[in-house]
Write a protein that binds this DNA or RNA. Structure first.
Length: 260
DNA sequence: CCGCATGTTTGCGG
DNA sequence: CCCGCAAACATGCG
């Protein structure tokens, strides 16, 4: 559940189930998930309660009544599970029991997720060198950011210290909808192209977030629905190809996306 | 068995 | 110092 829209959905999920309830039990899973000593998680969470949540990029911050902040990074397969039955999920890495008996688990099969305890959102943000939350950036700020950035456009958009929240799937989507080849160098993009990238980014994040939270299907014209080798491009001409950019599988249409 | 998967980090080389 | 690339992490799916 990893990129900005999925994390936004997890935020809504937690907000609507788990705020303002006293935590009466804490169960911990695989040690590698926990970025502070496991004992600290126990003592910080027990007898505490979540008061509000904040999202920056792919991170979710759960602020607590007694001061500290539980920070969740979902990795590739993490998600929350709120339940009132008795079977705890096989891959639960953290399970909290609330006073009314309901439970909230952090599920993470591949164990790429991480849990932190932070003193404040700001100090955590500085430590992790997190850039601005993608859907909050203004067009002006986006253009400024691109002025001083070099390298391939895909690598830049994936860089969490540059812009926080975009991942492999939606960067491919943005570049596809802009008609920009993912290996294009930022130095070679003109202002119109960067502006178009900004607009597509905002539009896609909004559309996908709505898709996650309200179940509205994604448009058929999205690369997302055709994202595998040899598929027909939704624009009608080419066939989707896969290359590696920044070490990640990158799907694109060679007809629609020319190298700049 | 093989390749691939929404992410991040580390080490190496240019 | 910057950039790019490969590998590693762990599990599931086709």
């Amino acid at each position: 559940m990893p990129e900005l829209p999925e994390v936004a959905y997890q935020k809504i999920y937690i907000d609507s189930t788990s705020l303002h309830q006293k935590i009466v039990d804490v169960e911990l899973g695989a040690p590698k998930i926990f970025q502070n000593p496991q004992e600290e998680f126990k003592s910080a969470l027990l007898d505490n309660e979540f008061t509000s949540t904040t999202q920056i990029g792919k991170y979710l911050f759960l602020e607590m009544k007694k001061g500290r902040v539980l920070v969740i990074h979902f990795g590739m397969t993490g998600k929350m599970d709120y339940f009132t039955h008795n079977e705890v999920h096989k891959h639960a890495q953290l399970t909290l029991t609330f006073q009314d008996g309901a439970k909230l688990s952090f599920i993470c099969p591949r164990k790429f997720g991480k849990l932190f305890l932070a003193d404040s959102i700001e100090t955590f943000r500085e430590q992790q060198k997190l850039g601005p939350h993608a859907s909050d950036i203004s067009q002006k700020n986006f253009l400024q950011l691109f002025e001083s950035k070099k390298g391939s456009v895909k690598t830049a958009l994936m860089d969490q210290s540059f812009i926080a929240g975009l991942g492999n799937l939606y960067v491919d989507e943005i570049l596809f909808q802009c008609g920009i080849h993912p290996k294009s160098r930022i130095e070679n993009l003109n202002t119109d192209e960067v502006t178009a990238t900004y607009k597509k980014m905002q539009n896609i994040l909004k559309t996908v977030t709505k898709n996650k939270s309200e179940g509205e299907p994604l448009p058929e014209t999205y690369l997302r629905s055709h994202r595998s080798c040899g598929e027909n491009c939704p624009n009608g001409k080419g066939k989707i190809e896969m290359i590696k950019v920044g070490g990640r599988s990158t799907y694109f249409c060679p007809e629609c996306q020319k190298l700049k």
